[in-house]
Structure formats: C-alpha cells, structure tokens
C-alpha cells in the first residue's frame, strides 16, 4: 500500500483552495488591500468588519425576519457604521492610532456579540442559526447534487455560496482596479506616501482615508455575509483576532498593493494548509509517522508551522509577496 494517496490529497487541496473559505478570505483580504495596500491604513481589526457583515445580515433575518435584500443592506450598513465609528476619532491622528483602535474594537465586537446581555439580538455564544432559509430559496443548485469541474466538487448549497463568493471577489477586484487607476486612487496612494504633501496640494486627506476605510470595511462585511451563507451559521468566536492575522497573511503572501494578489494569496494559503494537513494525516494513518511521535490532532497544528515557515522564507527571498513589485519594495530602503 502506498503511504500517501496523492490523488486524494490533491483533490482535497483543490477543493479547499477554490472553496468557500478561500473565497471568504480573498474578499476580506481585498478589503484589507484597499486599506493598507493603497491607502496605507493599518487595520488590524478586519475580523470586526467581517463580523459586522455577518451579524448585520444574520440578525436582520434571524431575529427580525426581514427579506434577503434588506438583510444584505443591513450587513453593509453595519460595516459602514463600524468604519465611521473607528475612523472618526483616529483618522486625523497618526497612523498607529487606527491600528490600536481596530485591534481593540474587533475584539469588543466579538465579546459583545457573545455576551448574554445582547442575547435577544445576537443569540450569545450559541450564534445565529436560523437565517439560511430565505437565502436558500434563491439557490438555483440542487442541494443533494454536487457541482464543480473535474474532481473538484461541492454540494449544491455550498456551491451556491462558493459561486457568490468568487463572483464578489472578482467584482471587488474590478472595483479596486477601477478606483485605483482613477484620480481618486492617485490621491489615496499619495496620502499613503505622504499625507502632508497631499494636503499641501489641496487634498482632504481625512475624507479620502474615511472613504477608503469604508470601502475596504464593506468588502470585509461581504466576506462575513458569504461565510454565513456558506456555513448557515454565524458563530461569535469565528471572528477572533487570529482571523484578522490570517487575512493579513493572505494579503502579504499574494503581494500588498496588487489588485489580484489577495485572490492568489488566499488560494495559495488554503491550498498549502490543506495539502500539509492531508499529507500529514495520511502519514500518521498509514503508520509512516508513528502515533508516539505525532497524532492527527497535532498534524492540524503543524500545518500552521509550515505556513509560518513558508511565510518566513517568502519574507527572506521575496519580501514583496508573490505578485508584489520588487521595484516598489526597494524604494522603501532609500
């Protein structure tokens, strides 16, 4: 018997690399790219924006019984509100203030959502679990059939969310591209480079930064909505600080400030951890790695070591990310 079933590993890897999680992470990282890659905003609380989208949409249906389109609008509004709330006091200050405030705010969102005080609205630690019905009515795919290409197959309900997810990701890449090649994008990049210079040329830096924060934040909100639709649940602890750092990882892996890079980064990230996980598990299951050394649970931890190691290597040999520009990176050193 072979020690590793490579066909199976490849199948799992591709399913994850092109699946729901990858789409969700890609969308959130596209938003982060708008924030950091173009506007230079240090948002360390993207998970909070994702939570805002998921909860905004979920609560609208789950608790208040609103129709789907109102729910999506509410997810967007929640994200916009969060952006304004964070941006108002911090965007006039130095860049690090936003960083600190976003870290804290995202954690507050999670803790408030899971608190018993708001149980009537957010359902506390239990999360929102009864909102998916109205969304599934729009699902053109048969829930009991599978869809996909070649051996990359998803069940109907998942496939629905996967299609929505990648469609949104492509749309957001397009929006980012259109915005950034415009005079608006030029101002935003100028503010990233030197806010005072931009202001001396008559650009209201505060306003542009607020716009960028909102746009990237709403993209984050959509990531949350897609995730909720795909998983049919909104769980508060999903939105922990670690989630934000995985979005950053995806962004850096792909290459900061490149429109397509978050999609590539996300596919790569999910592909890599799934590949390591499945290979490792099979090595344990088939006795190549003895259980006295490592069991399958430990393999699930090891995959993050590997990703961390890969990222460290990337930073050494290709600090601009896979699609980033070495030329731009070199300018920082001058």
């Amino acid at each position: 018997m072979e020690s590793v079933d490579w066909g199976f590993v490849l199948e799992q890897t591709l399913i994850q690399a092109l699946g729901l999680n990858a789409a969700v992470y890609a969308i959130a990282a596209i938003g982060l790219n708008m924030h950091f890659g173009y506007a230079g905003l240090l948002n360390f609380g993207q998970a909070g924006f994702v939570a805002m989208g998921a909860y905004g949409m979920g609560i609208a249906v789950n608790q208040w019984g609103y129709p789907v389109w109102v729910a999506v609008l509410m997810g967007m509004l929640f994200s916009v509100g969060f952006a304004v709330l964070l941006g108002l006091p911090t965007l006039r200050l130095r860049a690090d203030y936003l960083a600190i405030v976003t870290i804290a705010a995202a954690e507050i969102v999670r803790l408030v959502a899971r608190s018993t005080a708001l149980r009537d609205i957010t359902r506390g630690a239990e999360g929102l679990n009864e909102f998916i019905g109205p969304f599934r009515e729009f699902n053109p795919f048969n829930p009991s059939a599978t869809y996909g290409i070649w051996f990359v197959q998803y069940r109907g309900n998942t496939f629905f969310a996967v299609v929505i997810g990648w469609t949104l990701a492509a749309l957001f890449v397009l929006i980012t591209y259109l915005l950034i090649r415009s005079p608006w994008g030029r101002v935003v990049k100028a503010i990233r480079e030197d806010e005072l210079a931009a202001r001396a040329l008559g650009k209201n830096a505060y306003r542009f930064k607020m716009q960028a924060l909102i746009i990237g934040g709403v993209m984050g909100g959509f990531a949350g909505m897609v995730d909720a639709i795909g998983k049919a649940t909104v769980q508060p602890d999903f939105f922990g600080a670690a989630l934000t750092f995985f979005f950053w990882l995806v962004l850096i892996l792909g290459g900061v400030g490149r429109v397509w890079a978050p999609i590539a980064g996300s596919i790569l990230y999910w592909g890599l951890i799934t590949f390591v996980q499945n290979t490792g598990r099979q090595l344990v299951d088939n006795g190549v790695i003895r259980t006295t050394i490592m069991d399958t649970n430990q393999i699930d931890q090891i995959r993050f070591w590997v990703v961390g190691g890969a990222l460290a290597l990337l930073m050494v040999y290709r600090p601009q990310g896979i699609f980033g520009s070495r030329e731009e990176m070199a300018l920082d050193a001058r």
Binding site: S182, P183, R186, K189, A190, E193, D194, A197, L201, L331
Partner: peptide, 30 residues
C-alpha cells in the same frame, strides 16, 4: 516630499486642483 511610489507623471497630475475624477463616485467611470 516626493511621493516615492508614484511615478513622476502621477506626482505631477496629483497637483492639479478641482479634479472631478477625485470624487469617489465618478472615479470608477473613466
């Protein structure tokens, strides 16, 4: 204060006042 990661021509174009393409809504429509 040169905007190092903008091209020279983009630096120049940034200087122009009252650009309608700097409005968020118009910007996406060339």
């Amino acid at each position: 204060k040169s905007l190092t990661k903008l091209s020279v021509i983009d630096n120049m174009k940034l200087g122009a006042r009252h650009q309608s393409g700097e409005s968020l809504w118009r910007s996406m429509l060339r």
